[in-house]
Design a protein around this nucleic acid. Structure first.
Lengths: 245, 245
DNA sequence: GTCGGAATACTTGCATACAAGCACGCTGGC
DNA sequence: GCCAGCGTGCTTGTATGCAAGTATTCCGAC
């Protein structure tokens, strides 16, 4: 039905301790609920769970080798974030990509990143060395066509700008609303020329930050934030079932 | 221990259907989990549950006449929002008012409201009649010293600005992070002169919006957003147990 | 062939039981 | 009097069972 197959994990036929796999993503996830939540969030963001896909608590529970309880708690948090929609006695499905929500997320992202950029400029000469390193990583990811690595370096760069502004928590806030945009970008992903454009824009933004040019940065970030959303129409034509107004 | 007594509800000695009270806050809350969540959120925001207060799932469950399951789901969502902190096998406490978090929330609020204001100015002559009505309500609340009514009208006014900007969802995003600020303001609440200042600032902001003066509005909103946070030091001196860095 | 109705299978919501772990207090020894 | 060690009680985490409701599907009547 889509190029992004693969539900969540393998059925995991045999395992020494099937229900206990406490270590996830480098950190110790003592709570099974958190493990399920992390798994579902990344699956939704990476489109391994397609927009509109039906979810069943019992199905997820046996796939993940846990009971329904932690699955339910994870789904409750996801529903709170708007990533899934739960209809009592009917079913649970992954939220569609709402074009209105996407534009609102764009607005929030643009507003916060511009503000963070200006603050970072106001403070003394910002240290952009870490940003330069991330640009190098992005170039390397571009040349090796490693989209996942590019995504990670992209996230890290934008996050770093908030760190430089002195408001790293704002990035956490932003990430909550940004997932809609992430799914859109992930849909448009296998586009090397688009990645080229993004990297060049990143470089311009870093240059403006190094020069503490708030005016230029504002325009650059504004345009950069609108990149993803301008792909929406063609993507909706290609994957009409994934979208809603 | 504090002027904000009252845990959550009354013990509710007798009731025809104790576990079933589906109607809450005007809307039908079919899910008990949602009812508990709404109750806890408002209790935390209104300081009926003090920062740092210990919560027990079993205690909450029997107070609300429900089982632990919906309480746990509500707490999971609250923990996701940073309002409570759950330590496995130890306990759950209401999150303290983190001064760093408060300043970050101020940054997010200021950034988004300034951006929304500018967008609202850019669009043709905005209709400020609803805002004028809300100003009248605030004046009335001021004269009758009805702080809760003022709070509601205050919220409505700021929300309305986002509606006028065309990004009403950004207000939802903002509310998530704004709760920290709300608690701070609630602590400083019984201060009539402060309310006077806030209303006057609101009026100036509405005037600037009607005149589509983005530059003036930016400065006004920026100052307005910093009002709450400048009360932090004295409040921390008064309620040291409620705060953290 | 088509339409209507009832039974069935599935979904989520809630309550309860059991398990594991930490903190505190009490008791015994020194 | 003080300290160490153990036990009890509390906490949250997870699993399971039951209830209520909806969608679907199958069967029968027309």
């Amino acid at each position: 039905m889509s190029p992004h197959q693969a539900l969540i994990p393998e059925p995991t036929p045999v395992d020494s301790t099937p229900t206990l796999s406490p270590v996830i993503r480098g950190r110790v996830a003592t709570r099974t609920s958190d493990r399920v939540y992390d798994e579902l969030v990344s699956a939704i963001r990476e489109l391994r769970l397609a927009p509109g896909a039906s979810l069943s608590e019992t199905d997820l529970a046996e796939r993940l080798h846990v009971s329904r309880t932690p699955v339910r708690e994870a789904l409750a948090r996801l529903a709170d974030a708007g990533l899934v929609h739960v209809v009592p006695q009917v079913g649970t499905r992954v939220g569609l990509i709402g074009l209105r929500e996407v534009d609102e997320a764009r607005f929030v992202r643009e507003s916060l990143e511009v503000a963070a950029f200006e603050v970072a400029c106001a403070d003394r000469a910002p240290d952009v060395s870490a940003l330069r390193d991330l640009l190098e990583q992005q170039e390397h990811s571009y040349q090796t066509e490693n989209y996942n690595a590019f995504f990670a370096a992209d996230e890290a760069l934008h996050s770093k700008i908030f760190t430089l502004s002195g408001y790293p928590g704002a990035w956490q806030t932003l990430q909550r609303t940004k997932i809609q945009l992430d799914r859109l970008r992930r849909l448009a992903l296998p586009d090397l020329s688009a990645v080229r454009v993004l990297i060049d824009e990143h470089r311009s933004i870093v240059d403006a930050l190094e020069a503490a040019d708030a005016v230029a940065g504002r325009a650059l970030i504004s345009r950069h934030a609108r990149r993803a959303i301008e792909l929406a129409p063609s993507l909706r034509a290609k994957y009409p079932d994934y979208f809603t107004d």
